[in-house]
């Protein structure tokens, strides 16, 4: 945290490849910003940490970065429902610049509370709702519909445990279909709920990105493999462009081999699985902004 305001650079980014800038957003109560930024840095990104007040004062920052990460935590305490306060602020004041960044090929990653925030903004699932009026009187941009919710876990309490995820989409730049990722969940509100029509629509558009599976890959799964009772075992979804990903589990908590609980048994993979989404996203960004 000492280096919070600083920008760290990793040597891995060779001279040839473009500089990829990722903005890691921080609000009161955000607490996974350092490790999330670090995972991007490991994959060669130049990471800038910023407080939401600063971004709200200068939304233009979003025109000079290639990606936005909204890390886990309890933004503003989550006392009104996870992600509500930050989600509302972003929905009213940052939607347009974010949408523009994504239009140009940029990415948005929301992990845990970041996913909850993205759902509150409507950026996920990102169904357009042209009929809905803008929130601030006088501003009438196209506001995406808030079509899914992340509700209280079925057991109604916070739960920290490792889960197995499987990428089930071809659409998302963070994932390749079939990728398997072990990483922990740690949340109280992660049960994805939506009506059947929304589920069908997401499914048809290949927007269901990650599912909870059993350690052997089996699906569907009961509790605790599905740790919150999420519909269809959904752990993460992407938007229609595939460049916005929200997920409840924390891949950034499996970026060093010794973080993997299999490590002491000698069964952990050499390359930590949690880095996959960061790797894939960076590959996409380098290609796009070459």
């Amino acid at each position: 945290m000492a280096a919070r305001a600083k920008t760290r650079k990793r040597k891995r980014a060779t001279k040839k490849s473009p500089t990829i800038r990722i903005l890691v957003l921080r609000a009161p109560g955000t607490n996974c910003d350092q490790e999330t930024g670090y995972a991007f840095e490991r994959e060669g990104a130049t990471v800038e940490h910023m407080h939401v007040n600063a971004l709200l004062a200068q939304p233009k920052v979003l025109t000079r970065v290639h990606g936005l990460a909204i890390p886990g935590g309890f933004s503003y305490g989550d006392d009104l429902g996870a992600g509500t306060v930050l989600g509302t602020a972003m929905r009213t004041r940052l939607l347009e610049p974010i949408q523009r960044m994504v239009d140009k090929g940029g990415i948005v990653l929301g992990i845990c509370n970041g996913f909850q925030v993205l759902v509150k903004t409507g950026l996920l699932p990102g169904f357009s709702a042209p009929d809905e009026p803008g929130i601030l009187p006088g501003i009438a941009h196209e506001t995406p519909e808030r079509a899914v919710a992340l509700a209280s876990n079925i057991q109604n309490r916070y739960e920290d445990r490792w889960v197995t995820l499987k990428a089930v989409t071809d659409k998302c730049v963070f994932l390749r279909r079939g990728d398997v990722i072990h990483c922990p969940v740690a949340h109280a509100e992660g049960r994805l709920v939506c009506d059947d029509e929304v589920l069908d629509r997401m499914s048809a558009a290949d927007q269901i990105a990650l599912r909870y599976v059993a350690p052997d890959g089996e699906s569907p799964v009961p509790f605790p493999y599905n740790p919150n009772g999420s519909v269809d075992d959904i752990a993460g979804i992407t938007d229609p462009t595939g460049r916005i990903l929200g997920l409840m589990p924390h891949p950034e908590r499996n970026q060093f081999p010794w973080q993997d609980p299999r490590f002491h048994r000698g069964d952990a993979p050499r390359s930590p699985e949690g880095l996959l989404p960061f790797k894939n996203a960076m590959r996409h960004l380098r290609k796009t902004f070459a």
């Binding site: 350092q34 916070y158 920290d160 924390h250 970026q255 973080q259």
Partner: peptide
Amino acid sequence: RQYDHEVQA
């Protein structure tokens, strides 16, 4: 399990 024992990675 009600405690986050993983945060800060």
